[in-house]
Design a protein around this nucleic acid. Structure first.
Lengths: 136, 136
DNA sequence: GTCGTAGTATTACGGTCGTAGTTCTACAGG
DNA sequence: CCTGTAGAACTACGACCGTAATACTACGAC
């Protein structure tokens, strides 16, 4: 726990997340590849380069030089980022009360029964697992 | 559905939320009162005034003049804001997959059995309620 | 060796946020 | 009437975001 995520505001914007996603799915990606992946947004290539640059400065990406282009890699896993962002929202908006957040989610959304059952089975598994080992 | 929240990025920072909270709990609050409520942050009174001002411009607050001071009121309910913010996170980070978000929450947190049971009962109620009326 | 060009580095600009100093205005006390 | 002062209005500034134009550099083809 020393990644830039734990160092405070791990909030990424939609766009930044999109860039991260492009890198995640490709595992490694050049500026051109990320630009291509975000093609439908109509961004200039230099814009994408700037984004990657700033993300690297934030410690979320790193790059190596291959030929004359940069190949970026993520320094944080998607799960980590998700966790951090969810956690921050939970703290900010629900004062850390996870159950309250879940309630809100369930209350606000038209979740089909299948999804609900899925979630419930997750909970059941958790409950059943009891505290036999606490946490992995 | 025409509040500023539905109009795109309803993301508020920690500080902005704190200000909103101060107004929400007081129902109406002067600059001085909000400043007082946020006292532990050690902000200058003018800073608080600026915050309130900008929040008003964003359409989240309004004020009336009483004597020589401003009395602010929230134009959006806390629930609305919560809903919007959670929704945005769900979309951004989980592509709208609420169940995935819930899974993540359950996986990442050490939620005590009581909380889990609470959440599950909410789900059960939902499931039981079936689709008898859909939504009020 | 010169030059086109791919691709990075630098710079920019308008917006917002956090933060607050400075200025203006008008009520209250003398 | 004059003035202190409370409190709002205006201005500011560094940081970061979205966006990108422009500048630079070096490889590859002649």
């Amino acid at each position: 726990m020393s990644s830039p995520l734990s160092t405070g505001s791990g909030q990424l914007s939609e766009l930044q997340l999109a860039v991260m996603r492009a890198v995640w799915v490709a595992d490694e990606a050049t500026v051109a590849e990320v630009h291509e992946a975000l093609a439908e947004r109509g961004l200039a290539p230099t814009t994408v380069a700037t984004l990657l640059n700033r993300l690297e400065k934030r410690g979320l990406l790193s790059h190596r030089t291959e030929g004359r282009q940069f190949v970026y890699r993520a320094l944080v896993a998607e799960d980590q980022l998700r966790t951090t962002m969810v956690e921050e929202l939970t703290d900010r908006v629900f004062a850390g009360d996870v159950a309250a957040l879940v309630s809100q989610l369930l209350a606000d959304h038209e979740i089909d029964a299948g999804e609900l059952a899925r979630v419930r089975s997750i909970i059941d598994a958790r409950l059943r697992e009891g505290s036999d080992d606490g946490h992995r």
